[in-house]
Amino acid sequence: MQSILASWKNSKWPTHLLIIAGAFIMIYPLFWMISASFKPNTEIFRNTSLIPETFTLENYRYGWKGLSGVTFGHFFLNTFMLVAACIVGNILSCSMAAYAFARLEFALRRVWFALMLVTMMLPFHVTIIPQYIMFNQLDMINTYWPLILPKYFAAEGFFVFLMVQFIRSIPRELDEAVKIDGGGPFMLYGYLIMPLALPAIITTTIFTFIWTWNDFFAQMLYISELKLYTVSLGLRMFLDAMGQNQWGAMFAMSTLSLIPLFVIFVFFQRYLIEGIATGSLKG
């Protein structure tokens, strides 16, 4: 008996069981949502099981239709376009700023860097009202410009910071090689730093994707035209038309909306995890 107890104590099975039970509880709502998206509306509110009694694709057909002829396909396409434009902007502007901070020497560099760290902590509410007024005066309400333009001005300090950390870790001896070959700071940026900073660029791409995809506040603020709706805004429509017959369609579209995030997660998990961890550890 003693030895069984001891081996039980030393084995890691209890820990495994605890962790698996915890993980199951955490993930259960998500699995349940996916299964609910295949259940008829009447079943959703009585079946706690993950396996539908009646399997149907009707929710997907019904939900995909969207509103007034604008389908969810439209919303997905809009969002992908928006995300792509944001990714390009963040990569360009943040890498330029990061390169300047990490490798170039100029007056007030430390002051600017400190200011960048401060902007990372600013609540965006304190700028959103004047920004809205500005974009309104520029006649950009109901366009994607207010959502895209800030990315071309490196407004998200997190990415600049991430890239600065990464570029600093690239050995300076490599810079010398470029300089000996007669390359200036532009060559250094384009041919050495950018290619070597690829992991940081991928991390930036992934996080820009996730944050833009999940964004709701700014999209709701600037977009009210149905044709321009993103997936987030398309999903919000289910709030207004919340009859019992809508739940299945809502879960179906919600499930679809999470697929791109999940795909990114599966393929780029390493970058995601490292991005989160380095954001703090090297700081």
Binding site: L92, A97, F106, V126
Partner: peptide, 21 residues
């Protein structure tokens, strides 16, 4: 050169953060 690379961020700092605040 330094300010050239910094310019997008710097314009953003002025136009999207400092002045709006």
């Amino acid at each position: 050169v330094g300010y050239l690379f910094l310019s997008p961020w710097l314009l953003g700092l002025i136009g999207l953060s400092a002045l709006p605040i």
